[in-house]
């Protein structure tokens, strides 16, 4: 269990400032959500925190240690990410076996067969899936493999970049339940990006509403049903989501 803190993270692409200054804290073992409209910089926060983007200012600490100062191998074992699109995040020419054994090989971990079987079992897939290729799997199965890949290095923090938005509604529920179960069992810290308040309501303890790269308001989950947000944009967003749900 490790806490994650983001302090004054800012990044610009050319003349466009994508994140002016973002700060928030995620407690150890908490699931923290980031919501906002498209282009509000939610995914950019994750890409910066995971150092996929490196030209940002500010500080991200995991368990008190700045991510930039962590050695590469340690960082990989502390923080992993699940991507939005399971169709694009698995290498189309790698079998599930190579997808899962690659991180083990890089980190020189032994007992690979057992670890791979365990990882597949954790995400609810049979072990004979190891010899399959991504195109032989459904979207939900692919996302399970992507989660297994993130789990296999036993990280403390999982960054979830809209892990269900590319999936069917019923499959979404399966994946969300899987993620919730894994958090209970392993007490991960989740930082989850979503544009779907229902997903956030289901998963997260607290969430931040983002607009144009800035955090408008941080709210607890209980604030959703009665729309207790103070900031006008957050009220509007939650209100719209509630009306939509009622209409359904």
């Amino acid at each position: 269990m490790k806490a994650l803190s983001v302090e004054k993270m800012s990044i610009r692409f050319g003349s466009v400032t994508v994140l002016p200054e973002v700060s928030f804290e995620v407690a150890a073992g908490e699931c923290f959500g980031l919501v906002g409209e498209s282009g509000s910089g939610k995914s950019t926060v994750l890409r910066c925190a995971s150092l996929l983007l490196s030209s940002w200012q500010g500080e991200v600490r995991i368990g008190g240690v700045p991510v930039r100062e962590m050695p590469l191998m340690e960082r990989c074992r502390t923080l992993q990410m699940v991507f939005q699109d399971p169709y694009g995040s698995l290498h189309p020419r790698h079998s599930i076996r190579s997808v899962l054994s690659e991180p083990l090989r890089i980190h020189g971990l032994d007992d690979r067969e057992a670890r791979m079987a365990q990882a597949l079992e954790d995400v609810g897939l049979p072990p004979d899936f190891l010899d399959r290729y991504p195109h032989q799997l459904s979207g939900g199965q692919r996302q399970r493999v992507a989660i297994a890949r993130a789990l296999i290095l036993e990280p403390a923090v999982l960054l979830l970049d809209e892990p269900t938005s590319a999936l069917d509604v019923s499959v979404q529920a399966e994946i969300l339940n899987l993620l919730a179960r894994l958090r209970e069992e392993r007490s991960f810290t989740y930082l989850m990006v979503s544009h779907d308040l229902a997903v956030i309501d289901h998963m997260c303890d607290r969430f931040a509403v983002m607009q144009a790269g800035e955090i408008v308001e941080v709210l607890p989950r209980d604030a959703i049903p009665s729309n207790q947000a103070d900031a006008p944009y957050a009220r509007e967003l939650i209100g719209a989501s509630l009306t939509y749900e009622r209409a359904l």
Binding site: Q80, F83, G88, E102, I106, H107
Partner: peptide, 12 residues
């Protein structure tokens, strides 16, 4: 592609 990003996150 995301699978390259994933490989980088694994320390490749």
């Amino acid at each position: 592609a995301d699978y390259i990003a994933a490989a980088r996150l694994q320390g490749a």
